[in-house]
């Protein structure tokens, strides 16, 4: 691999998505995350704590329910000594009809050092970033992007495969409604991976091939899986589909659940990933999820490390 320029700071003031990031930005995040990792492919390490961001505060504004991503951010902030304000938005002014912008302007007036936002509408972090200079970390916007997930996935893949280029990655399931898929496609494509998308035809439109270089759409799961080094399963986003796009979960599972037999089409050392929460027996068979091929727990641990890195890089400036 050609030597890449090493940079000390991100080219962007916010983390809105993977698409606007440069390869150097991504390398910087991954390198920074490495020092916070509690597990690699070969070893487990003690939890790393410091007071790098002591005295700084982080606001978590989750307009859409989430447990894992929120807790992962909380842990990340805590391990860096940050104060965390967890906004219970159900009980706040959003319910009283206050506009999104007014709610966020109020939050920003409290001078947090960074703002983590999850919202059910695509583009909300971009919209808010136009109105505030507080660093915004996108924790998932609608169907658009989920950049921290793609970064933790990249860290996990590199731990196991030693590289991000010259890989075949199969991403399977409900691609259309998946912000995880979009962010992963952008990231892996930047590094030159070959990306095969598979799933039910209405959930994997052909247009995805134009999203980034190196993407192919296969409606046959076996074709997508063939010789894959990495198999990334997606959860069926029942709550984001506004129309029935398949007959029933059972019908979906029959044709698209990742079983041991289907996984046999991939490389013998292929790893299996899932952003969680997964639907056992629907998008992934229990025996696959529990097998040694599955790196799902590793993804969760890397999530905290990557979010620590992002907080350091984005909220670490003089306050």
């Amino acid at each position: 691999m050609a030597a890449r320029k090493v940079v000390a700071r991100l080219s962007q003031p916010h983390l809105l998505g993977i698409e606007p990031l440069s390869i150097e930005d991504i390398e910087l995040v991954l390198a920074t995350a490495q020092k916070y990792q509690t597990r690699t492919a070969h070893e487990t390490r003690p939890v790393s704590r410091n007071d790098l961001l002591a005295g700084k505060s982080l606001v978590l504004a989750f307009f859409e329910p989430s447990t894992r991503t929120r807790i992962s951010f909380e842990l990340a902030a805590d391990r860096l000594g940050m104060d965390v304000v967890n906004l219970a938005l159900e009980a706040s002014s959003v319910q009283k009809g206050e506009s999104l912008l007014d709610t966020v302007k109020t939050l920003v007036a409290m001078r947090p050092d960074a703002l983590v936002i999850r919202h059910q509408a695509s583009g909300v972090p971009q919209f808010l970033a136009r109105h505030t200079s507080v660093p915004i970390l996108n924790a998932g916007d609608g169907l658009h992007e989920h950049p921290t997930q793609a970064l933790l996935d990249a860290l996990t893949i590199r731990d196991h495969k030693g590289r991000l280029d010259n890989l075949k990655v199969a991403i399977l399931g409900d691609i259309l409604h998946s912000r995880v898929a979009r962010s992963n496609i952008h990231l892996l494509s930047k590094f030159g991976a070959r990306i095969a998308l598979g799933g039910p035809p209405p959930l994997v439109p052909k247009g995805f091939e134009k999203l980034a270089p190196g993407v192919t759409v296969c409606h046959e799961l076996d074709q997508a899986l063939a010789a894959a080094d990495v198999v990334m399963m997606l959860r069926v986003q029942l709550e984001r589909q506004r129309e029935p796009l398949f007959a029933s979960p059972a019908e979906y599972a029959r044709h698209y659940c990742l079983t041991t037999e289907r996984l046999a089409r991939a490389q013998p050392d292929a790893i299996v990933m899932h952003p969680g929460p997964f639907l056992r027996g629907i998008d992934i068979a229990g025996e696959v999820a529990d097998s040694s091929r599955s790196v799902i727990p590793h993804q969760v641990e890397n999530g905290v490390a990557v979010r620590m890195a992002l907080l350091e890089l984005l909220a670490g400036g003089a306050s």
Binding site: E19, G123, G142
Partner: peptide
């Protein structure tokens, strides 16, 4: 058209908009 907010095409797919 239900639920759509912009033209269905490559740009909508990229932006994650219906």
């Amino acid at each position: 058209a239900a639920g759509g907010v912009m033209h269905e095409g490559d740009c909508a797919l990229r932006l994650g908009l219906r």
